[in-house]
Amino acid sequence: MEIIMSVVAGILFAAGIYNLLQKQLLRIVIGTVILSNGAHLFILTMGKLKRGAPPVLEYGVSEYADPLPQALILTSIVISFGLTSLLLVLSYRAAQENNTDNMEKLRGNHDE
């Protein structure tokens, strides 16, 4: 199971990086979203996948899922959610001001 999920995370990473290297701004934003989802899946996989066990640490319970990766993912999801919304607004404003959403044209020149 861990191996399959690692491969899935790898595919997400590849797709994310492919999108990140495009010229269109919106595609880049989507790329970062896919990339961070890949990272979240990867954290879950690294904490060992277990089905049907409660994530709570209690006295006397011997079978439990590791709560730490879940806490990490939750934090990370919140952060990437905030970042994505910021990035969307930022790219919208930048595209509006510069009249283009093409990264090649957003390179800028020396005279400014």
């Binding site: 970062t32 990339l35 990272a39 990867f42 970042l83």
Partner: peptide, 25 residues
Amino acid sequence: VQLRESIKYVLVNLFSSIVFVTTVA
């Protein structure tokens, strides 16, 4: 100019943050 440059700044830092999370994993 600010908006144009800050996109690059945000993207680079965002990418390195994602790598950071992966490394922590």
